[in-house]
Amino acid sequence: MPQPIRVLVAKPGLDGHDRGAKVIARALRDAGMEVIYTGLRQTPEMIVNAALQEDVQVIGLSILSGAHNAIVPRVLELLREKDMSDVKLVVGGIIPDEDAENLKRDGVAAVFQPGASLDSIVTFIRTAVA
């Protein structure tokens, strides 16, 4: 049996809208992954530390507040500093197209916008980690 994929689902910033994060966490778990959910109001430092401790292959950030341009680059920077660039960073939420392109250029593996299907997210993670 292959080891299950380990994913950290994280809610950075001040936003409390956790419906999406919780739905994704359950969907990934139903798809056979091991999911750790950080809960609310995580700083980039807390998220990267949790990812290191939990030894995850994927970090999923849920951001709906418009703060992604402040938060995501900082997470990428910390991953590089800690030599964790092999961890795939996936972002979901209200991310305008232009910002999504920029984030992907900076190193984000995928950006999932509203309406993205759970299946497409599961499939992406399986392919990216394989």
């Binding site: 001040l14 936003d15 418009g66 703060a67 341009n69 402040a70 938060i71």
Partner: peptide, 22 residues
């Protein structure tokens, strides 16, 4: 905005990127 909802001033360490957004 979110800093106001959470009782933080705009210069609080949790506020960057959130001021005036929501």
């Amino acid at each position: 905005d979110l800093p106001t909802l959470m009782g933080y001033d705009p210069d609080h360490p949790m506020s960057p990127g959130e001021v005036g957004k929501c």
